[in-house]
């Protein structure tokens, strides 16, 4: 068994520079946090006296709530800053906005932004830690961590990621969840198969090590250990990325029938929010194969572990 290691990162911007053993250590901490969330009193004093600011430039009540719960369950103070649209509309640069909020003496920012790289830019402008809660189409590391954790906990007889195959179906091009999961699963030794209409599967992504593209769902799920359906946004039709919802459903909807081709213990995942009967068949989402609810439930303990790992032991 892998030794638990100290996590020495200041920020969680993406998982590129996190090692496999750091991720496993984070998941061990998550195990402890899962137990905390099962107690009568779901609160520990670990982060007492620390201030966490959620900085959401793009609306996402679920993710924000999950982080807020994770922070409060460890007794941190939480301030919410809903930046909504752009800061430029107020004539203020992104840096100025951050500097103004920095006066609140935050220890950590949870940043959600519609444009890739913004959390990286911010990390250059503040001494506080930054957790990326989703930036553009680039990364959503806590989502990937909770997806991976859900597989680790939920796959029958789990013996590691090596040799496992994850299939991600849908709008991979615009998906930070897909990019972060690709990075995580391949780092841990799994293979990732991307499936969807060619317009939504960037050629370059298919050339990453451990990643393949496949345009037919039946072929893609063959023998898969986990299949993740991505949310299909109707706006994509307008940009000429696929012709119609019915054509998408016919070719790429994840159904109980198509899952018969997967590994007998294969798990069905969805990062939410789900368009029932568009990208995933409703009955499949409710079937025993589905771990969609567990994904949501693991959000809080995974984020608790992230906050703990970034904030504890930082004094040098």
């Amino acid at each position: 068994m892998m030794e638990a290691v100290q996590i020495r990162h200041r920020h969680l911007l993406d998982l590129e520079d996190w090692s496999a053993s750091e991720i496993e250590s984070l998941w061990r901490t998550t195990d402890a946090m899962v137990e905390v969330m099962q107690r009568k009193v779901k609160k520990v004093p670990a982060l007492q006296g620390l201030t966490i600011v959620t900085l959401f430039f793009e609306n996402s009540t679920r993710t924000r709530l999950s982080f807020e719960r994770a922070a409060k369950a460890q007794s941190a103070e939480v301030l919410n800053f809903a930046a909504g649209g752009s800061s430029l509309s107020k004539g203020e640069s992104l840096k100025d906005t951050l500097k103004a909020i920095d006066a609140m003496q935050a220890d950590l920012y949870v940043v959600r932004h519609g444009v890739a790289g913004t959390p990286h830019q911010m990390s250059r402008w503040t001494d506080a830690s930054i957790v990326n809660a989703g930036d553009g189409r680039r990364a959503h590391p806590t989502q990937a961590l909770l997806d991976g954790y859900t597989f680790r906990q939920g796959f029958r007889g789990f013996d590691g990621f090596r040799g496992k195959r994850l299939v991600i179906v849908g709008d991979v091009m615009h998906s930070r969840v897909a990019r972060s999961n690709i990075g995580l699963w391949t780092k841990l030794g799994a293979e990732v198969v991307l499936c969807g209409p060619r317009t939504l599967l960037p050629t370059e992504l298919g050339q990453w090590p451990g990643v393949q593209r496949c345009f037919r769902l039946e072929e893609a799920v063959e023998g898969a250990h986990a299949v993740m359906a991505l949310r299909m946004q109707r706006e994509r039709m307008q940009s000429g990325l696929f012709p119609s919802v019915s054509e998408y459903q016919a070719r790429y909807q994840l159904t109980a029938k198509v899952m018969e081709r997967a590994h007998p213990d294969a798990l069905v995942m969805h990062p939410g929010p789900m368009n029932r009967d568009v990208e995933i068949e409703g009955v499949l989402a409710d079937s025993p194969r589905s771990v969609i609810e567990q994904q949501v439930a693991h959000g809080v303990p995974v984020r608790m572990a992230v906050l703990y790992s970034l904030l504890v032991g930082r004094a040098r």
Binding site: R28, T29, A32, V44, L47, Y308, V312, G313
Partner: peptide
């Protein structure tokens, strides 16, 4: 019982104690 999350020095120390599961 793992008491790590209840330590009163967590934000002052330079090492990160490993949290184990309370059972």
């Amino acid at each position: 019982l793992d008491i790590t999350l209840y330590r009163d020095d967590l934000t002052e120390i330079g090492v990160q104690p490993i949290v184990r599961r309370t059972e």
